[in-house]
């Protein structure tokens, strides 16, 4: 009998008196689903319950019909990449992925790890220690641990946060490929633009509650009222700001000693402009991230609309 990948029924979680998530009843059978919400909305809590790192205070969660906290059967079909950057820095990339393959019971772990790292574009770096990896490379190494055991459900917590556009593209492509391969992918972000690049199916979570779910276009019009913010960590932010100031879609620019915060009405054009300008003016680009202020404003609007 076919079972749903994720089935949450009245799922609630409290940390003492603090609410993590509240009364989530939701299910997904396949495809890529974006879990969207500002920082602290309850996305990570929900994901940790999905992968069996936490158990619900109330309600239940089933992964392919099994409880992921108490049974290993459910976890044998899950892959999880946590939000934090921490990896075993003293391990080589190949050792890290091989260890995870071994822990998942993969018959030929070394070969499977090599294949996963090649798929993630890390074939030249598999013999390097993880502590020497960039943030994007670490994310890709984490993703390699997610595909090494051919799971049915892949849970990715903020995989695109703080990485450069090239790495972002690689990860997005790989996530799309996972979906084509028939995996169910749950991917979280506090940036609508990031999720939009991967899927149109979303669940919007805010203050532990599901605000909206379904097709992304439903809330797109609301989002467009709020400018998108991009934090650019780079050398010479003043020069970058000067070059970008003339673009029509730029609403506001703020810069510090080593960063620039851009507000734009067109995120796609803005990302292209940032990379093109950095290349043209030879400005070193360390990372791009999106503070969730605009999304918080959106959620306030949505909450207000509901009230």
């Amino acid at each position: 009998m076919s079972k749903l990948a994720i089935e949450a029924d009245g799922l609630s979680k409290w940390y003492g008196p603090v609410l993590g998530v509240s009364e989530i009843s939701w299910s997904v059978g396949g495809g890529v689903v974006g879990l969207l919400g500002p920082n602290g909305a309850g996305k990570s809590t929900f994901m940790k319950m999905v992968v069996g790192l936490m158990r619900p205070s109330r309600g239940s969660i089933r992964i392919f019909g099994d409880d992921p906290f108490t049974t290993t059967r459910a976890r044998s079909r899950i892959a999880y990449a946590p939000e934090h950057e921490t990896v075993y820095g003293e391990l080589l990339a190949i050792e890290f992925v091989t260890s995870m393959a071994r822990l998942s019971g993969v018959p030929k772990p070394r070969q499977a790890a090599e294949k996963a790292l090649v798929e993630m574009g890390l074939e030249k770096s598999m013999g390097r220690m993880l502590k020497g990896f960039s943030k994007g490379m670490r994310q890709r190494a984490k993703l390699a641990t997610c595909i090494v055991h051919d799971p049915d459900l892949v849970v990715l917590d903020e995989p695109l946060t703080g990485i450069d556009p090239l790495e972002r593209r690689r990860i997005v492509d790989r996530v799309r490929q996972m979906a084509k391969d028939g995996k169910t992918v749950l991917i979280s972000s506090h940036v609508l633009h990031e999720v939009e690049a991967i899927t149109e199916e979303i669940m919007v979570i805010y203050r532990g509650q599901v605000l909206a779910e379904g097709n992304l276009r439903k809330i797109r019009t609301l989002v467009d009222k709020h400018p998108h913010r991009i934090r650019v960590e780079c050398g010479e932010p003043r020069n970058l700001a000067k070059a970008m100031a003339m673009a029509e879609h730029i609403v506001n620019l703020e810069f510090g000693r080593d960063h620039l915060i851009v507000e734009t009405e067109s995120p796609n054009l803005c990302y292209d402009l940032i990379t093109a300008t950095c290349l043209e003016q030879k400005i070193s680009l360390r990372s791009l991230s999106s503070p969730d202020n605009n999304l918080s404003a959106l959620f306030d609007t949505l909450t207000g609309d509901r009230a």
């Binding site: 059978g29 396949g30 059967r73 071994r102 019971g105 051919d150 049915d152 028939g182």
Partner: peptide, 24 residues
């Protein structure tokens, strides 16, 4: 539904201990 597309491996108890020991 995505049930049954993956391989769903899982190590034995001894295999898991050996894998953790090797990593450690």
């Amino acid at each position: 539904m995505s049930d049954g597309k993956g391989t769903a491996y899982a190590p034995s108890g001894a295999g898991a201990v050996a894998a953790i020991a090797q990593l450690t």
